[in-house]
Amino acid sequence: MKMRVKLFGTLRQRFPDYRHQQGMEVEIPDGATAKDLLSLLRISESNGAVVATEGRILKSDDRIQGRAHVNVLQAMHGG
């Protein structure tokens, strides 16, 4: 299925064609998890990247199927 992904922090720098207003469309396999999405985008979890949708930060193994839109964020302390 296809989903729209928006990148925050410095993550967008890794994708030269990325346009934030539109975000990027990503094709994910059935049953994909937050971890799978990051892996597909070649973003390492060890850099503090997390996936958020519908007001929640997803755990690595949470499925993202059925979500039309997610934000990929970088963990930080604040602020």
Binding site: F8, G9, T10, L73, G79
Partner: peptide, 19 residues
């Protein structure tokens, strides 16, 4: 990486994303 590019304002996205 994050602080020099977006500073503490980098928290606007995560905190809104968490409602």
């Amino acid at each position: 990486e994050v602080m020099p590019k977006v500073g503490t304002a980098g928290l606007v996205a995560p905190v809104n994303s968490m409602g």
